[in-house]
Design a protein around this nucleic acid. Structure first.
Lengths: 346, 346
DNA sequence: ACTTTTTTTGAATACGTATTCATTAAGCAT
DNA sequence: ATGCTTAATGAATACGTATTCAAAAAAAGT
């Protein structure tokens, strides 16, 4: 590279950032008064306020957020910890959280990782920046991490996940009931041979969904259930379904642990030359946008995304702004969205 | 509010954050020395370093990043401005940027918005936090925003987008050449009647892709080209294709401005009872993961995502760490990925 | 042993804001 | 006018770190 052509380093040192004192000097007031105007909450005479704002505009002055955070011990940053942003469900979640929190003046620090250790180290960095709050989305390590945040006085809300001890606020869908309703629906339509292709067995969502499903089948004395754990990805659903269907010809119904898995299942079924729903029924979980694409038209369980995100933000902001320490748990309902991937077998 | 029930405010005041002075006191050294250990770069005797680290561990001490940023005038935060995180291409982009930058110790401040004004206000907030750098991804407002950042001495790299004056570094795919190659490929396979369903006409990607495409058709004396501008979404592609195909029966080839559009096109074609590629060929742009799902198997142009993100990060970090001011432009190649949505018509 | 050089160390200061406290100006009733 | 209450203001200080500068300690050279 042409680093040799040594110019005299134009900026870097020159980039003078104006401070509240500069503004004060121009406006003919004290730094305190400038600060009061930009902090917003205290009284300043209209006359001086005008002068100050004019001076600030002239210099294109912006308060230094680090200095502010240092003195107030509050930052306007919120950490959002995710596990799989490539899952469209979480892309949507991220978008919504961003819109909501941005409207309230908060910045989002985004953390995504399937790897627990990376997350740990990043969480330490969140602590260094004194984030106002953290949303942990279906992530690993929820419990140890949220304890850590709590210890530092940082509010945490778990989204789509909860911990046993209920020490953190949490918002999630009643996955257990949802799975029961799905199971009931399928059983009553006459399905006999079930396969459940789940996500990782160490997440609360997976556990609850599986539990509800198994319970209903047990009640109805149906023993023909294969459980295939995997990951919450298309490929995982595809491969599991492929294996399952080549081994076990008479399966008439496959439930995906989430929609992405279910879409993978659908493609596997089709590649094998079977038809949906004529030969096999498929059900998903989440109701992501792709589920309604005509090529899939997946019957699935809708998580009430708007309500869930709204509650999460409300909870978090209440904890942050009111110092509310008592943790609350919101369990949402959701509902079945019937499309074209299930059919009666009676 | 129940301010009257005056409890002694349990935490909030109690949540003592330990400082470098506390560590210094325990370790029996000065604050300066503690700082030196955590800043990393200067000499401290091995003996004291050990003592200090032990004391720090005991208190679970973490340096305050705001204080650090205030004094160093550098933050370890990078703003990433996006336009449509729901497009899987950008979910992937975000994930990769996060992995790369997180590994280097940077935090990502995520900004997503289709609305230009919201972005403006958020960008001001980025400035308040003194971000070290900014990646602007296919966003609106690139040029005015990047100028603003530059004025504050903040490094900017544009991703998948460039501005005319070339004042900012930029990394993008050679969309013009790519479109030419796609067009040539389709023409040589004997297609006669083209439709191009594009994204918004005010983005450089759209413009370049359209230009390349039109040029080739003009060279080959093909006049039968319909251009349908829309958005980079499934619905947009779906609706445009539906309209187009009901009006204009003899179209034998539809090009989507990106993959999501192309997938929408495919579903529209199928809903109308036509077959791909027998009746209509479809081509996309990006090569997102869904393109290879068996239900679509979309022929598309692959953007070299890894190389593009790697270059972007390298460029940005070089500018940040070396104060490199000369802007560089990387134009990548990409290549056609042939699957099952195009067929010869000769 | 005593310089001379190099490495460590601590005291002091700066970064840019918010906030307390005392002071001054303004508002208002008499 | 006078007193009295309220609002507006500035000086001083704190937040927690990095860094400069001078002093002290250690190492090296003779």
């Amino acid at each position: 590279m042409s680093n040799s052509t040594n110019q005299p380093k134009p900026d870097a040192k020159t980039k003078k950032n104006y401070t509240s004192e500069d503004v004060a000097a121009i406006a003919g007031v004290s730094q305190s008064t400038v600060s009061r105007v930009f902090a917003g909450n205290t009284n300043v005479s209209e006359k001086k306020r005008k002068k100050i704002l004019a001076a600030a505009a002239k210099l294109d002055y912006k308060p230094n957020a680090h200095a502010r955070s240092l003195i107030t011990r509050k930052s306007m940053m919120i950490g959002i910890v995710m596990r799989n942003i490539r899952n469209p469900f979480y892309s949507a979640v991220l978008e919504i959280f961003h819109n909501r929190l941005s409207a309230k003046g908060y910045h989002l620090i985004f953390i995504n990782s399937e790897n627990e250790e990376i997350q740990e180290s990043e969480i330490n960095r969140l602590l260094e920046y004194n984030v106002a709050g953290v949303i942990i989305t279906d992530a690993l390590l929820s419990s140890s991490a949220s304890q850590k945040f709590k210890r530092y006085g940082i509010s945490v809300v778990l989204f789509n996940r909860y911990t046993e001890n209920l020490e953190s606020s949490a918002v999630f869908c009643d996955n257990y009931m949802a799975a029961k309703q799905i199971a009931t629906y399928l059983v009553e339509l006459g399905h006999k041979s079930f396969a459940f292709i789940s996500g990782p067995l160490d997440t609360s969502t997976t556990i609850d969904r599986l539990r509800g499903f198994k319970e209903v089948l047990a009640e109805r004395k149906i023993k023909d259930l294969t459980i295939e754990p995997g990951h919450y990805t298309f490929e995982s659903g595809f491969r599991s379904a492929q294996e399952l269907l080549t081994k076990n010809k008479h399966i008439d119904c496959i439930i995906g642990g989430n929609d992405i898995i279910a879409l993978g299942v659908m493609d596997a079924v089709r590649v094998l030359g079977l038809r949906i729903p004529e030969d096999v029924s498929v059900v998903g979980f989440d109701n992501i946008r792709m589920s309604e694409w005509p090529s899939y038209a997946l019957t699935t369980w809708e998580q009430p995304l708007e309500e869930m995100t709204t509650s999460t933000v409300e909870l978090l902001l209440k904890e942050i702004e009111e110092g509310n320490t008592s943790s609350q748990v919101f369990m949402m309902k959701g509902h079945l969205v019937v499309r074209n991937t299930v059919r009666s077998r009676k």
